[in-house]
Amino acid sequence: MAAGVPENTRQRILDAAVEMTTETGWASVTMSRIAERCGVSRQTVYNDIGAKPALAKSLILRELEQFLAVVSAAFDEEEDDFLKAIRQATYGVLDRAQDNKLLHAVVSATHGADTELLPYLTSHSEGLLGYATEIIHEHIKRFDHGLTEHQADVAIETIVRVVLSHVMQPTKTPDETADDISWLVSRVLG
């Protein structure tokens, strides 16, 4: 965050960008329109966020942090049962994704021309995957899952990719998908 810009201003800027994206699409989001909506100068938006690619990255990272908070809560709640923690984390992410307006705007844009945000979730998602994998790896350390560190990394990355796939294109309810992924993990651990 830029020095001198309060956190609530940054959040208002990001909230305004989400609102504009869900209302009229990412292509219509400009720093000037965000500044106008937030009641700040355009320079404040640039100083705090940067140019539009940095805004896109900030939006996606903020969403990721909110999804990872759901994952962390699931692991904290199910502190003694590894499979239940995996199931609850998966369910929580998929349930949250169902009602996430920004995510829906990004995914639905694939049917039109406004796909500038999509690479942050798909082809340019290395940072997203790395961050999610690192957070989950920290959570599973306290469980006796029987996997080596390398095996755990492979399993986590695979699960994160599968969950992300279901976030982007769900084929079942969050409950059903969480059950399926939990079953798959149980087979790996078995």
Rank of each mutant, 00 (worst) to 15 (best):
Q11K: 13
Q11T: 15
I13P: 03
A17P: 06
M20W: 01
T24G: 06
T24A: 12
G25H: 05
A27C: 10
A27D: 11
V29L: 00
V29R: 04
I34M: 04
A35M: 05
E36Y: 01
R37V: 09
G39R: 12
G39V: 07
V40L: 03
S41K: 02
R42Y: 09
R42N: 14
Q43T: 10
V45L: 02
N47P: 00
G50D: 00
S58Q: 12
L59P: 10
L59E: 08
I60H: 07
R62Y: 03
V70A: 07
S72Y: 10
A74G: 09
F75R: 06
E77L: 13
D80L: 09
F82N: 00
K84V: 04
R87L: 09
Q88T: 09
Y91N: 04
D95H: 11
D95S: 13
A97R: 02
Q98L: 09
Q98H: 11
Q98G: 07
K101E: 12
L103E: 07
L103D: 01
H104R: 15
A109H: 09
T110A: 13
H111D: 13
A113M: 09
D114Q: 12
E116H: 10
L117E: 07
L118H: 11
Y120H: 15
L121H: 12
H124P: 03
S125Y: 10
L128Y: 15
Y131Q: 11
